[in-house]
Design a protein around this nucleic acid. Structure first.
Lengths: 140, 140
DNA sequence: TTCTGTTTTAGAACTATTCTAATCTGTTGA
DNA sequence: TCAACAGATTAGAATAGTTCTAAAACAGAA
């Protein structure tokens, strides 16, 4: 009865995804989905859930993140070698990547046009189009 | 006097980039630039240079790849967490990424249109726009 | 409750990459 | 030509992020 959430609560969200609503997954789902759109790394989320006095192991954080991606609740964004971001916004959109700060900023799908996409190589089908606009601190 | 190369030879290419033309860098530059456009990982290039009976340490391969990127001879493409690709095509273009095979395929810059790019966040300037079209083996 | 399959966990293992400190090499200038 | 020095290379250790393993804990069904 308060925020604009796609599901009534984390429990229902997990049930809909066919994931058993364990304490750990509930805690993680709440952190991820009870705020607006977020871009988190596994380490960040792990730190948050520990701070929230709900100890969850790092392995479980990774497991849950991947299960959420598999269930379409989360999207993995790759911008940096050796570190994955998980995006709670799974609608059609793209990203600014602030290289200095290591931060992602959403660009709504309708705020950018990608046209004339050539046909994919023979025997393959397009799964997704990712546009990443890398920005840097403006030279003084 | 044979192939279509942007520089007469690896030696001149390194000199122009302000890099001392050592044996190792010459060997790597030849492998990278004497063929057409390539997308290699550090490990792949290391394996190639060893096969070519010119032992070069992995650390040197990484050093050289980064120096080549810094000199604008190479471009780093990030599509996978935990593995970098280096692209010898530094002109304006984009990529198909064949997820099953882990292969990159160039899309010439003029074969795709990215329009209406929104203004970058305050205080930042666009450094590069990357379009990655992820494709998968066509479902049978 | 008890049972069963799933989930969680600590810690080890793994992969890609970077660092370190010693050795070597290319270039410069005498 | 050669000495000297800055820069480059190297093996191996170290690091970061992630995945794996095997054992213990748990959720849900009966």
């Amino acid at each position: 009865m308060s925020g604009p959430r796609p599901f009534a609560n984390a429990l229902e969200l997990l049930r809909n995804a066919g994931l058993r609503p364990t304490r750990q997954r509930l805690a993680l789902a709440r952190l991820l989905f009870d705020q607006g759109d977020r871009h988190v790394t596994a380490e960040q989320l792990h730190a948050e859930v520990l701070t929230a006095s709900m100890p969850v192991s790092l392995a479980t954080v990774y497991n849950a993140l991947h299960q959420f991606v598999g269930a379409g609740l989360l999207r993995e964004v790759v911008v940096n070698p050796g570190r994955s971001y998980f995006d709670t916004n799974v609608s059609d959109h793209h990203h600014f990547f602030l290289e200095d700060a290591g931060k992602l900023v959403d660009i709504p799908g309708d705020r950018i046009d990608v046209a004339n996409v050539p046909a994919p190589p023979a025997g393959t089908a397009i799964r997704r189009v990712d546009v990443i606009i890398r920005v840097e601190r403006e030279p003084a």
